[in-house]
């Protein structure tokens, strides 16, 4: 058993408890329809996320990873999302080096009141991942094209 074959891709979200997880709840309460691909891991703060979690997910077979925290300046722990922003930005830059298409990873900020924004974020990100297709390391995977381009 896994994601539904042909229908879904494996999309993993890391959401901070205070803002984005609440935003996803608000979207649910508002019945804002979303694609079913995403599975959410709840963390206390986006600053808790070790970039290696994201890599572990992507290398373990996830097709996309989405991180969402509180808006800058609005962190429940004062400054956790600032650390997250720096770490994740650096991570994004490194993904091609590892042979991973950086478009498979995105981070964003959604507050607990922004249910509609969460719907938009999930829908757009999932659509983007579907456009990229399943991640694999076959010779014609987009990841390898990037690696090859880098090599050239």
């Amino acid at each position: 058993m896994s994601v539904l074959k042909e229908k879904e891709l494996r999309v993993i979200g890391f959401l901070c408890n205070w803002c984005s997880y609440g935003g996803a709840d608000t979207a649910g309460v508002g019945r804002f329809a979303q694609p079913t691909d995403l599975r959410i891991v709840r963390v206390p703060c986006s600053g808790r996320i070790n970039p290696l979690f994201v890599l572990k997910a992507l290398l373990g077979g996830a097709d996309g990873v989405l991180v969402s925290g509180c808006h800058p300046r609005d962190c429940h722990y004062a400054e956790g999302n600032f650390y997250a922003r720096r770490r994740l930005e650096v991570l994004k830059g490194f993904l091609p080096v590892l042979g991973i298409d950086p478009r498979r990873f995105e981070y964003t900020w959604v507050s607990a009141s922004e249910g509609q924004r969460w719907q938009h974020v999930v829908t757009t990100f999932t659509a983007n991942i579907h456009a990229l297709g399943p991640a694999s390391f076959s010779p014609d995977a987009p990841e390898l094209e990037i690696l090859n381009a880098a090599a050239r």
């Binding site: 963390v43 206390p44 703060c45 600053g47 808790r48 996320i49 722990y77 956790g80 650390y83 770490r87």
Partner: peptide, 10 residues
């Protein structure tokens, strides 16, 4: 400690 986990990721 407020339990944010910043230190953990650091």
């Amino acid at each position: 400690c407020q339990g944010c986990g910043l230190c953990n990721a650091t």
